[in-house]
């Protein structure tokens, strides 16, 4: 018998790149928090909003059942950790708050395919085939593994999924999990959502089209970024602009002058144009031997 399914909306992010609360972004007069709650409510037996402890009194969040982080500043894994501990009998359908294209059919697909014997059930990213941990069902028995993961100083929930026994699904609606991180992406999503376009279709191409890239982090930068890689959509068109963006977004302490940059597995120049699908690595000062 599988554990009861509770819902968790992750709203504790700092929205550094957006520079405003992603949960409060509005689409057709409704905040993304309201939209996500409406979507999730009918599918779970209880619904909670995951918050940082300093967000508990926030007007947008105060009226909802909350689960506050028990460990601060470790990112989304902290929200998942707090939920698994707060209600140890429950499985959790965890949702990020920056998924404006998410539709009921995608959640139904996830729930129908759920395998309670695994630690989690998740979708494959349409960009790189890796797990999407923030639209996924986390089973109660994942708690010990999550505890151990955090205790070992790991943070990235995606890496967690890649190194544990989980069920991976292919998205029927490939666009459902496209997330938004910048104001430009929000405006794009807004026009797609409010323009009557089905949530499964892409917005119209913009004049200066954002590109999707993969960034890998090593050594001190990996520690500072709290992840070993990420796929992101950006309007940065050179490594220098991309690094400036990531430095602000991820709180990186190293400066560009201290680093070298590699694109697609070879050294590159800081002003070299970036192309969609590139893999970019910023290299901290090396110390072999």
């Amino acid at each position: 018998m599988s554990a009861p399914l509770f819902g968790l909306l992750l709203t504790g992010g700092h929205s550094r790149r957006m520079q405003r609360d992603k949960a409060a972004l509005e689409y057709e007069g409704r905040t993304q928090l309201q939209r996500a709650m409406t979507l999730l409510q009918p599918m779970v037996s209880q619904l909670f909003v995951s918050v940082r402890s300093d967000q508990q009194q926030d007007p947008l969040r105060a009226g909802h059942a909350q689960i506050a982080d028990r460990i601060t500043d470790i990112g989304p894994i902290g929200g998942i950790h707090a939920a698994l501990h707060g209600h140890p009998q429950a499985a959790w359908l965890v949702l990020a708050i920056d998924l404006p294209f998410l539709d009921a059919a995608t959640l139904q697909q996830l729930i129908a395919a759920r395998d309670p014997q695994r630690l989690a059930t998740a979708f494959r990213s349409r960009f790189d085939g890796k797990p999407e941990p923030l639209c996924a069902i986390w089973e109660p028995h994942s708690r010990a593994a999550v505890d151990a993961w955090i205790a070992a100083d790991n943070r990235c929930p995606r890496s967690f999924m890649m190194s544990h026994d989980i069920l991976l699904l292919d998205l029927h609606n490939p666009r459902a999990l496209d997330n938004i991180n910048t104001s430009a992406e929000y405006l794009e999503a807004l026009s797609a959502v409010t323009g009557g376009t089905a949530s499964g279709t892409a917005p119209q191409a913009q004049a200066s089209e954002p590109i999707t890239l993969r960034v890998q982090y090593f050594a001190a930068l990996r520690d500072q970024a709290g992840r070993s890689e990420e796929t992101l959509t950006t309007q940065a068109n050179t490594p220098r602009a991309l690094f400036d963006e990531l430095r602000a977004l991820r709180g990186l302490q190293l400066r560009a002058e201290q680093l070298r940059v590699a694109i697609n597995e070879d050294f590159a120049e800081w002003n070299q144009p970036l192309a969609a699908g590139d893999t970019v690595v910023f290299l901290p000062p090396v110390a072999g031997g």
Partner: peptide, 25 residues
């Protein structure tokens, strides 16, 4: 000097750090 290899030292006092990097930064 040139090959992208990084070294993290774990110290007897329990501390650790990336050589050439973290502490400079």
């Amino acid at each position: 000097h040139r090959v992208p290899i990084w070294k993290k030292e774990h110290y007897v006092n329990g501390d650790s750090g990336w050589v050439n990097c973290e502490r400079c930064a």
